[in-house]
Simulated assay, not measured.
Amino acid sequence: MIVRSRAPLRLGFAGGGTDVSPYSDQFGGRILNATISLYAYATIIPKIDGKIHFVSQDLEKEVVYDSQETLPLDGTLDLLKGVYNRMVDEFNLGALSFELQTFVDAPAGSGLGTSSTLVVAIIGAFARWQNIPLGEYDVARLAYEIERKDLAMSGGKQDQYAATFGGINFMEFYADDKVIVNPLRIQKEHILELESNLVLFYTGSSRLSSKIIDVQIANTNKKVVKSLEAMHRLKQQATDMKNALLTGKLDTIGECLGEGWAFKKQMAEGISNPFIDEIYDRAMNAGCTGGKVSGAGGGGFMFFYCPNNTKRDVIKALGGLDGQVKQFNFVKEGLVTWNI
Rank of each mutant, 00 (worst) to 15 (best):
Q187M: 15
D251G: 07
P22F: 00
E136T: 14
G82S: 03
P22A: 01
V293Y: 02
I44C: 01
G323V: 07
Y84W: 05
R128M: 06
L11V: 06
L32A: 11
L194F: 01
L151A: 06
G299Y: 07
P107E: 06
G113S: 07
I146V: 14
A7S: 12
N92V: 00
E145C: 11
P46I: 11
Q266C: 15
L9W: 04
D25A: 08
N131I: 06
A175H: 08
L32M: 14
A34C: 12
F263W: 11
V88T: 11
T102G: 02
Q26P: 07
D49W: 12
R282D: 00
L9M: 10
V225T: 07
P107N: 06
A121W: 02
I186N: 10
L71V: 08
V55K: 01
L246A: 11
A127G: 03
V199Y: 03
T239Q: 12
A244K: 10
V88N: 05
R207W: 12
N243M: 08
Y144K: 04
S67F: 09
Q101Y: 08
L228D: 02
E69M: 09
V336T: 15
D251L: 09
R233F: 13
N308D: 14
E259H: 12
I132K: 06
H53K: 11
N169P: 04
W129M: 12
L245C: 08
L79P: 02
G113W: 01
A238R: 01
K311D: 01
L79M: 14
S154V: 07
V119T: 14
A7L: 10
G290C: 06
F170W: 04
G82T: 05
L198W: 02
V139P: 01
V63D: 05
V20S: 02
K311H: 10
E99I: 13
E60P: 09
A152E: 12
N339F: 14
F275L: 13
A175C: 07
W129I: 10
N329K: 12
E229P: 01
G17D: 04
G16M: 03
L208Y: 15
N85L: 05
L32V: 15
G298P: 06
T310C: 10
A121S: 13
I276M: 08
L71W: 02
L118G: 04
N169K: 03
L77N: 10
T117Y: 00
T18S: 14
G258F: 06
V224N: 15
N33S: 14
A230V: 00
T252R: 14
K226G: 11
